[in-house]
Simulated scan of single mutants.
Amino acid sequence: MIVTGSQVRQGLNTWFVLPLRRTAIGLGCAGVATLFSACGQTQALITNQTIQGFVDQVVVPSYVSVAAGATQLEQALQTYQQAPTAANLEAARQAWRVARDRWEQTECFAFGPADSEGFDGAMDTWPIDRQGLKTAAAQPVEQREDSRKGFHAIEELLFAATEPTLSDRQHLVILATDLTKQAQGLVTRWQQASDQPAYRSVLLSAGSTDSAYPTLNAAGTEIVQGLVDSLSEVASEKIGGPLETQEPDRFESFVSRNTLSDLRNNWTGAWNVYRGQRSDGVAAGSLQQRLQQQHPVIAQQLDQQFATARQALWAIPEPIETNLASPRGKVAVLTAQTAIAAVSDTLERQVLPLVQ
C-alpha cells in the first residue's frame, strides 16, 4: 500500500490545529509575540541570513563535495583500467558509493542550474537505456542521451554480475570523466559568473528589484518546495513504486544494492537544508531556527517527524533490495515511507504557506 498525502494529512490535522487554536485563544494578541511582531503584522519567516546559510553552508559545500567524489571515482577507474585486480575493482566500487552518497544529499535543491542547464539529467537519469548503453561506447559522451551516461550507467557496468571487460573498463573511464566534468560544471555555475551571473549571487540577491527572486519569500518558496518535492519523491516513487509492485529491481540503485544508502542520504540532505548547515547543531537564521522562534508548534512537529523518519530509515534491514519481500522488511519499508511522507506533508501544508 502506498500512503497518500491525504492519509497522512488527516492524522496531522488532529494533532496540529487544536493546540495552536488553544494557544491563540488563551493568550490573545499580546501572547503570540513569537508569531507576530505587532498585532496583525507577521514577521518574515525567510531572511537574508536564511538564504545565505542555505547557499554557503549547504548547497555550495555539498556540490564541491560531489565534485571531489566524482574526481576520486574517475581516478579509481583509471587505476582499475590499468591494473584490473579484484582489489582495484572493489576500490572503484567504493568510490562510486561515496560519490553517489554525496550526490543524493543534493536532491532537495535540484533547482537552478541543476535543472535548467541539464546537470541533474546528465548525472542521474534513471532508469537507464541498458541496451543503448551496450552500443554507446564508440559514441562521444556529450552526444548521448542522458539515459546512457551518469551515475547509473557507471553503476550498470561497474557492479555487473560478470567482471568488466577491457571494453567496459575503457567505457567506465569515459563515463567517469564526463561525470566529473558535469559535477565541476555545477560547482562553477553556482560560484562563478560567465555570460550569466553565478547562481549563488542570484539567490543572495533575492528581494532586490532586478532579481530573479523579487522577494525573500520567493527564494524561500524555492527552498521549501525543493524539500517537499524531494521527500515526496522518496516516499511515493523511490519507496512507493517497488513497495506497491513488490519488484525490487524498481529500486533506483538496485544493481549496486545502494538504494538504502540513497534514501538515507536523501533524508540527510533534507535535514541539512532544514537546519541550514551540514554539521551538527542549529544554524542562526536557518529555517529550523526561524520556525522555532515564530512557529514553535510547527518546529516541534517537524523536529519529531524528521527524527521518526530517520529512525525508520535506519531500521530497514540491509540490503533493502533483498529484504523487501520478507514480512519484517515490508513492514520496515512501509513504516519509513509513512514517516517520510509525514515530513513532506507538514512542510507542504504548514510551512510552504508561510513563505508564499
Rank of each mutant, 00 (worst) to 15 (best):
P113Q: 02
Q143H: 14
C39M: 06
H295V: 03
Y274G: 00
L35A: 13
A312N: 04
L166V: 15
V64S: 09
W126E: 00
L20H: 07
L287E: 05
I320R: 02
F54E: 08
K330N: 14
D56N: 14
T215F: 02
T125P: 01
L203A: 10
A212F: 02
A198Q: 10
Q191G: 01
N272M: 13
A342D: 14
T177D: 10
A206V: 09
G40K: 11
N88Q: 14
K330W: 06
D168S: 06
I128A: 04
N265M: 13
A160M: 05
K134A: 15
A307G: 04
A153E: 13
Q94A: 02
G207N: 05
A24Q: 14
A92M: 07
Y213W: 04
D120E: 15
A99G: 14
C39G: 03
A70Y: 01
R22S: 04
A87H: 00
I239Q: 04
P327T: 10
N13H: 13
S279V: 12
T34G: 12
S208E: 15
H152S: 02
P164F: 13
R144D: 10
Q288A: 15
S205K: 10
E222F: 00
G11Q: 15
T308H: 09
V282L: 11
L12N: 10
G185F: 13
L324M: 12
G132M: 03
V17H: 00
